[in-house]
Design a protein around this nucleic acid. Sequence first.
DNA 1: TTGCTGTTCCTAGGGGCTCTAGGTTAAACC
DNA 2: GGTTTAACCTAGAGCCCCTAGGAACAGCAA
Lengths: 197, 197
Amino acid sequence: MARAGLTADRVTLAGAELADEAGLDQVTMSQVARRLGVKDASLYTHVRGLEDLRGRIALLAADEKTLRIAEATAGRSGKDALVAFADAWREYAHAHPGRYTATQLPIRIDPELAANAPGPRRAVELTYGMLRGYGLAEPDLTDAVRLLRSTFHGFVALEAAGGFGHERSPQDSWVRALDALHTLLEHWPPSREGDSA
Amino acid sequence: MARAGLTADRVTLAGAELADEAGLDQVTMSQVARRLGVKDASLYTHVRGLEDLRGRIALLAADEKTLRIAEATAGRSGKDALVAFADAWREYAHAHPGRYTATQLPIRIDPELAANAPGPRRAVELTYGMLRGYGLAEPDLTDAVRLLRSTFHGFVALEAAGGFGHERSPQDSWVRALDALHTLLEHWPPSREGDSA
DNA sequence: TTGCTGTTCCTAGGGGCTCTAGGTTAAACC
DNA sequence: GGTTTAACCTAGAGCCCCTAGGAACAGCAA
């Protein structure tokens, strides 16, 4: 019987494709094995188990998303960069819903695996770089980064969960949200003393 | 053998408790049945299946969250209301992580069940009510609501997923984010023509 | 060509899960 | 007390994850 020529990466990719097509919860060892024309037990040579596979998909997605954002924001600054960043984020989530939901999993990723992934550090660099033009200093910079990531992720997540009614197109709200965030960054409120509610 | 006295609500509550203690993915028919001292097949009298149970947990969580927010914002306005609203949201997510993640599920809830739930409509009313003081008109109002919900949900979700490093406390970033959102609402940017990128 | 080695992929099987079908038995009403 | 209506049960099919151990292929050496 001919070998299937599997590797951890090929298994991960098959899982990622399945996640996008059928939803992350349909990503099972059996389904992935079936898609690869192989028995499920064979996957355990390449991947530690289901949890490990999901973690690898999450890592793959994070890397891909970061790459898209890097390409989109290259050479841009100010609001251009902000919009390019945000649109790339949202478009990745739309194009790869299963992969994207994998990134939402509580981090239970093999640390050794994560250490080799370029994604996280690169993502942080990109975000801080995008905000450079707004002239924020720490800790406002960190707070702004967190606010932006929260908004991008939250918007995409609510959109995917069907959280927006049909009255107004999400796209229009998205554009306005980016407008709003831009003006917010330009007029970031000064920190006041005694704030720790 | 004495009856256990189950109802759909009691089954849902047991599932919700289990979700908070062990994570939503540990909410299985078998586990919930075990917790109730009953065989798993017995649950199907009260609940259509696992998907239905998860939907019910999501609905319960939405109602509870809305109630907390209503209590927190009662009698407040302006930034007070905004902060109370947001804090109640985040505190609910912290207190009931399993229930909260259930609300993130793509809506696959029994429509008949959802129709009887007071949550969604009430939540919308509350949010619009909170924004009344800022003097926004449609469609800006809808856009602002969506932005706020996105940010609240996104922040909580990233926080739960371990998405924030350890450099700065999430609490501090949260307080500053609310400051920022408040000033943003006070200076909501006017809509410009030709915006539809 | 033959034999050796390491890895890939297999079969077999245990245990947990969801859900259905159909039987009992407890509670509720006449 | 008898009848009816449900709640709860046992039994079982089918799918899932994962482990243990066997078979077969690829590469290399002699």
